[in-house]
Simulated assay, not measured.
Amino acid sequence: MDLRQLKYFVKIVEQRSMSRASVELHVAQSALSSQIASLETRLRQKLLIRRSTGVVPTEAGQALYKHAVAILRQVERATHDVERSGGEPSGPASLGLPVVVEDLLALDLFVAARARLPQVTLHLSEGMSYLLKEMVLQGRLDMTVTYQFEPSPGIVEHPLFTEMIYLVSPAKSGVKPHKEMSLAQAVQYPLVLSSPQTAMRRVVQAGLAAANLTVTALAEIDSLKTLVDVVEQGHAHTVLPASALQRQLKTDGGDSLVLTPLDISRNVVLCTSEHLPLGVAGTAVYELLEDVVRKALKERRWLGIGPSTGSPSG
């Protein structure tokens, strides 16, 4: 396939308009249409549908779009690395961070990147862990921090750390601090939990399945702030990982929350694509993130968080 045709196709899909893509690319609309027609003939598939609301990809077009974005990104990365070979790392590098882990890692990584990789433009993307992993597979992100749950085809996982999971209770509930509580005991309390597709909920469901238990949540809330607010105001309990509770852990739970470690934990990993190699900038950020984690673990700055087997160590 012609790289120029892929570039045109991607721009049309993203702009949802042939005319807007024409303006962005500084290419006549008739030339764009001709190139897309040639691409459709080459692939023997209809790729775009023109509607009154705009241009949308067909199912075949959606499949091509994912590959085209990855291909163009790899070509751009390869060109940049060859042109800048021998110099210090430079150019863009992107990292996905799930909402819960962002507060733990983002600021330290940003500061370290400014000091040690001044020529690298770091892009941090926040989102749900499964969506971030999909973006890595599509080549839209270089790497993402996520949670080890089950193998994902095309994804390589590098262990970063293991974190404890806590029952988070309102102080007014009368729950007394425990050294540890079983998940079976925790689900006896009225719970608000995140939705089933989130990594935290999947950890809870796996623990329940292992114990042949079920739970009915009072509500499903994906917002971390709202979950904590609901608990602080005494409406329910919830289950959260150590990464989401560093402020509370460092103040012994404060006056509004009681934190009880559960008999479950989860592994946090750094994911890259098996098929799309990192460029120089991406590799430098990957190694820098390992150093940031290694330093935090060595200094024991994160409570309830420790090394994973095979994770960076001091």
Rank of each mutant, 00 (worst) to 15 (best):
V82R: 12
R73D: 11
L122H: 00
T121N: 11
P89T: 00
S85G: 06
E102T: 05
E150K: 07
Q148K: 13
E83R: 07
G91I: 00
E126Q: 13
L132T: 08
L97P: 04
S129R: 03
S125E: 11
L95N: 02
L122A: 01
E83H: 09
A115W: 05
T146W: 12
L131Y: 12
P153D: 00
V99Q: 10
E102D: 08
L131I: 12
M135R: 15
M135F: 15
V156Q: 13
Q74S: 13
I165Y: 06
F161L: 12
T162C: 14
S129D: 05
L105K: 05
A93S: 06
Q74V: 08
G154C: 03
G96A: 02
F110R: 09
L122G: 04
A93M: 02
I165T: 04
V101Q: 06
E88Q: 10
L104V: 03
F149M: 05
E157I: 01
S125L: 08
V100N: 01
G91H: 00
G87I: 01
V156P: 09
S94R: 08
A106D: 02
G127N: 00
A70N: 12
D142W: 14
A70Y: 08
M164P: 08
K133S: 15
L132G: 13
E76N: 06
V120D: 04
A70C: 05
Q74A: 12
F110T: 11
D142G: 15
A113H: 09
V136D: 13
E88M: 09
P92C: 02
I165S: 04
V156M: 10
D103E: 04
V99K: 08
Y130N: 14
A93E: 04
Q119G: 03
E76R: 02
T162R: 15
F149A: 05
V69E: 13
L167C: 11
A112H: 12
P98Y: 00
E126K: 14
R84L: 07
I165M: 09
V136G: 15
H158K: 13
E150D: 07
Q138D: 15
L104H: 06
V156S: 12
S125T: 10
S94M: 04
R84A: 11
P151G: 02
E157M: 04
I71P: 07
L141S: 11
S125M: 08
V156H: 13
F110D: 09
L105S: 05
V82F: 08
F110K: 08
